[in-house]
Write a protein that binds this DNA or RNA. Structure first.
Lengths: 233, 233
DNA sequence: ATTTGAATTTGCGCTTTAACAAACATGGTA
DNA sequence: TACCATGTTTGTTAAAGCGCAAATTCAAAT
């Protein structure tokens, strides 16, 4: 494998404050690998042997219940760390990670975690802030799930996806990876049927357009109104 | 105020691995205060000026939505840190903290966070594992809320409260602080009416007894079966 | 002792949304 | 090209659980 260029990770929040020479060493110690769309990166319950940095693509992180229900915890965007069980004091991965599109992923062995956090306190601080942000986000979703109706939650989910991963096209904001009705239902705690009905209804009202696994938001403002709880369709 | 004894904090997970002399210094730098039942310790959106350690009692942590709905994020038990916005990279508290019973609380100024984490790496590690555990717990609840019916969720909530805060009596396991139907509904994303009905039903079946703001679990096993999703009442 | 407010119980109607079912569309692959 | 797996739409039905209302119990305050 050819050497990785420092510019790849220079702009990434977790590595802010680390000098170029050290970054280079970090990259030398990393393993780089391509995952095809649909390929598993790690599995819930599996030994947490590595932690990961997504260089390019999107990764879907999900949990499976004892009953076989799946819920999507979050999507990882490029530049984000994931699978950092070490930071949380876990020795098994608490979730599944699957490439949502073709991905480029860096990984380091789990024992490298201590090396890097010891050598680069800023990395530790940055990373724990990431964990903190995810805790906030998770609690935010708890509140949503507890207090909002399905329609609002789905509107919110679509809105967030558009904001986080959206790519501007001449029509509107396109969600940048294939996402099915089922995926959205697993993000919002409902059924794909209900999601389908909602999307159809919104499409009729010109709020968005959708094809199979593709959604383009046209009227983000309208969606935001629905997400906020306005009941006039 | 009289000096605090090191034995107060010696057994607390966050402080494991810190020598007695240093602990003493920590205690000297801490502020100790008693909060009466119902008193606010900090408020959502308020400046995160301090972080806290609960020495005795129980603290209810809740979030308020824009619509005025409240949900209970978690109960803090004695020995736990809370209000650690600093660790999460926040400068405002993301939730409310209220004394659920009379409480004894230690607190340190926010800028002391850097002092202590720098001087005691084990403290940092321990604490971040706490944050990690809370993230796990939060995601666990997301899964519950997404996939389980109300009955299961309420059973789970009661079961967890009994396990975490339960006190054995000759009848069964008593939840150690006053908790209303409303509280439980705010933990499980339902209404106090539904909770009331469920508790009444369970009381009739001898699974638990409840008075106003008091719940004693008699048949934890039965409750666990309901929590797991068995539908025979 | 009385009052007042909070917590709880219970009934009933109704909305939301899940469950089931079946047809249909689409894109990849043999 | 035809087929097949996967994803989507849509209709119908039924149940879960919420909203509303009213009665009741209890505890604390005056």
């Amino acid at each position: 494998m050819s050497a990785l260029d420092v510019s790849l990770v220079a702009g990434i929040p977790s590595f802010r404050g680390i000098e170029a020479a050290d970054l280079k060493q970090l990259l030398t110690d990393a393993r780089s690998r391509r995952y095809e769309k649909g390929e598993a990166i790690f599995n819930q319950g599996g030994d947490a042997h590595s932690f990961f940095l997504l260089l390019d693509g999107y990764v879907r992180v999900s949990r499976l219940t004892a009953e076989g229900d799946q819920i999507i915890v979050r999507y990882i965007c490029s530049g984000e760390l994931f699978g950092i069980a070490q930071a949380l004091g876990l020795n098994k991965y608490p979730a599944n990670a699957v490439a949502a599109v073709d991905c480029i992923v860096l990984s380091w062995s789990d024992n490298y975690w201590n090396v890097i956090t010891k050598k680069h306190p800023t990395f530790a601080t940055n990373t724990y802030q990431t964990v903190g942000a995810r805790l906030q986000e998770s609690q935010e979703r708890l509140v949503e799930l507890s207090t909002e109706r399905v329609e609002q939650r789905v509107a919110n989910a679509v809105l967030n996806l558009a904001q986080q991963t959206g790519r501007k096209t001449d029509e509107g904001i396109l969600i940048d990876f294939p996402i099915s009705r089922k995926d959205i239902s697993e993000m919002t705690g409902t059924t794909l049927h209900t999601v389908s009905r909602l999307l159809s209804s919104w499409e009729q009202h010109g709020i968005l357009t959708s094809e199979r696994k593709r959604i383009t938001v046209l009227e983000g403002h309208q969606l935001a109104i629905i997400a906020a709880g306005d009941r006039s369709k």
